[in-house]
């Protein structure tokens, strides 16, 4: 049984088409939902929660019909909203217990479980505080607690790391990964932060202008580039770049401090004579049968030090932008033909 199966789901609001021909088959697991603002992510989530009827198509979520499921769907889903969604005046434990009761847990069970979940999420101390006193980081955990209280098989997480500082974000992502890997929770993580998705999700769905433009396992979407490398080099680049070229290596770009550096003779212009030598990054395209040992030989000849060497595979950010660009081009072609 697939977690979510959608067939040609469409939703329009008047003239505006929010979703068009969305066909998806997602297995249980950690799913990232990506897309720019207005791509239809929230419309899709609403349809999956049974809060909005699709105007076309049909679908099932854990074998529940999304057109008729309504309440039944929401019982399977723990929803963590991006907005605060708190009930002022309540204490942490009361709030989570209330969520449990709303999900349909008996009152006593909800109360017991609220304490358990809050302790698990590291809010043990804050359980009896009023919600108004919670910090951003605590609120995010609290929102996760209220989504987990009835132990749902599926979680919808809307920007769960927004407003968190680096340590808080790291902790939240680790928590999500544990929930997914060790406790078998499936979730849909909807976020603008592609790094978050890259860290915790196995599968991604990219929505763009109401259509699914890509879905699949992150690994499979990535174009492997066996012939492209990223080199981090400490020292002056001039000689090395010349030598690389002489060996038939194409230098595609050079950056220093994330800023592009011209590949011409002025490549080392901003490096002073004394003081520390900066680290620059080169992206190179190597000829066939290239041995990476040659990088080290050339660097050694020129007295520079290689501090890093990686295959230049795409990251999620690049996949995302490539897909969006491809879609834009196809649409342009289609419009041109029509």
């Amino acid at each position: 049984m697939a977690l979510i199966e959608l067939e040609q789901i469409g939703r329009r609001f008047g003239n505006h088409v929010a979703l068009h021909d969305v066909t998806l088959r997602l297995e249980a697991g950690r799913i990232g939902l990506l897309g720019p603002n207005g791509a239809g992510k929230s419309t899709l989530l609403k349809i999956l929660m049974g809060l909005l009827q699709p105007t076309e198509g049909r679908g099932r979520l854990m074998d529940v019909d999304i057109r008729r499921g309504g309440i039944q769907l929401r019982r399977l889903i723990g929803y963590m909203s991006e907005a605060d969604a708190l009930v002022p005046g309540l204490r942490g434990a009361e709030y989570v217990a209330l969520a449990g009761q709303l999900y349909g847990m008996p009152r006593g069970e909800a109360h017991r479980r609220a304490h358990e979940v809050l302790t698990y999420l590291g809010l043990e101390e804050a359980r009896y505080r009023r919600l108004e006193e919670y910090s951003t980081g605590m609120k995010q955990r609290l929102k996760l607690a209220q989504a987990l209280v009835h132990d749902p098989p599926l979680l919808f997480l809307d920007e769960p790391t927004s407003g968190l500082d680096p340590a808080g974000r790291d902790a939240m992502l680790r928590l999500l990964l544990t929930l997914g890997r060790e406790h078998g929770k499936s979730f849909i993580l909807s976020t603008h932060l592609l790094n978050d998705v890259e860290r915790v999700c196995e599968t991604v769905v990219i929505l763009y202008r109401g259509r699914v433009i890509e879905q699949g396992r992150t690994e499979e979407l990535r174009t492997s580039r066996y012939d492209r490398y990223r080199l981090q080099v400490e020292g002056k680049l001039g000689g090395l770049v010349d030598d690389l070229r002489a060996e038939g290596v194409q230098v595609l770009s050079a950056t220093r401090g994330r800023r592009a550096v011209s590949l011409g003779p002025e490549i080392d212009a901003e490096i002073g004579e004394n003081g520390r030598l900066p680290v620059s990054e080169l992206i190179v395209l190597v000829p066939q049968d290239w041995r990476t040992r040659l990088f080290f030989t050339l660097a050694d000849n020129r007295g520079v030090v290689i501090r890093g060497l990686q295959r230049d595979d795409e990251d999620l950010e690049q996949i995302f932008h490539r897909k969006i660009q491809e879609t834009g081009t196809t649409e342009a072609v289609r419009h041109g033909a029509g």
């Binding site: 041995r291 990476t292 040992r293 501090r307 890093g308 060497l309 990686q310």
Partner: peptide, 10 residues
């Protein structure tokens, strides 16, 4: 050591 290094990352 005549090694072929495929990955080097701090």
């Amino acid at each position: 050591e005549n090694l072929d290094v495929t990955h080097l990352e701090t």
